[in-house]
Design a protein around this nucleic acid. Sequence first.
DNA 1: CCTAGATCCTGTAGCGACTGCAGGATCAAG
DNA 2: CTTGATCCTGCAGTCGCTACAGGATCTAGG
Lengths: 133, 133
Amino acid sequence: MTIGQLSELTGVNIETIRYYEKIKLLPLPSRAANGRRVYGPSEGRVLAFVRRSRELGFSLDEIRALLRLSGPEKASCREVREIAAHHPDDIRAKIGDLCKLERLLSATVARCSGTTTAPECPVLDILDVQRAK
Amino acid sequence: MTIGQLSELTGVNIETIRYYEKIKLLPLPSRAANGRRVYGPSEGRVLAFVRRSRELGFSLDEIRALLRLSGPEKASCREVREIAAHHPDDIRAKIGDLCKLERLLSATVARCSGTTTAPECPVLDILDVQRAK
DNA sequence: CCTAGATCCTGTAGCGACTGCAGGATCAAG
DNA sequence: CTTGATCCTGCAGTCGCTACAGGATCTAGG
């Protein structure tokens, strides 16, 4: 598989694949005689794992740790749990923040007629004056 | 007011204030004889505006635009509305993503006993195999 | 066989929004 | 007069990419 095909298959940008290689998230792939990278199906699976983990909000460092744990068979589920466990809390907190924010912003934009001049604009008011959470 | 007091007052890091100045988000402050930055209450208000806008998810470029609109009295509310209006949608989309993610992750972590070895760990499974949204 | 365009290579610089540090100057309190 | 806090400038680093520049090589069509 060429890097382009791997990119196609996993939905990960070519540049990003090379970047992952550079920061040693992915192992150095073998090379064809012409110097081009050659990938097999196992590399595809690893990269898909990385992509999926990114989508779930894990950092590249955490993914590195997860890959280490999923590789050699000796790893314990508990360690995986430790990495994964704090995420739902973070996420819930973020959701809460965003919900408050969404209510405030859309209510404010709704009150904004679009006709008055800036000094009376509710959107500017809310940024300027209002301190309510 | 010194930069430290301004930082205290607004909750914006000193380094960040200087950064905002460098990228011309904030105007150059006047200086005391010893070369130190001196701020008045109006600078405090502007910086608080910036902070609040950041909390609401506006980019520094958008904030620059909002400041321009809120400054000279001629600005129209409609332009403000244009900048603000697309945010609630973005935010709602983000909330939706995060909710799905939170459900998936916490259900998975719950299923993870912490006792099995890595190959059977549900957390690793979900990253590795499962493709469901 | 030749050419055009696609794909690949390395290496480096840029993004946003900061954060941190080096190395020095100056201030305020005891 | 000394100590420690605060300030100054300027630059490098963070994260997770993305976008070049400038070249080499592959593949398909004529």
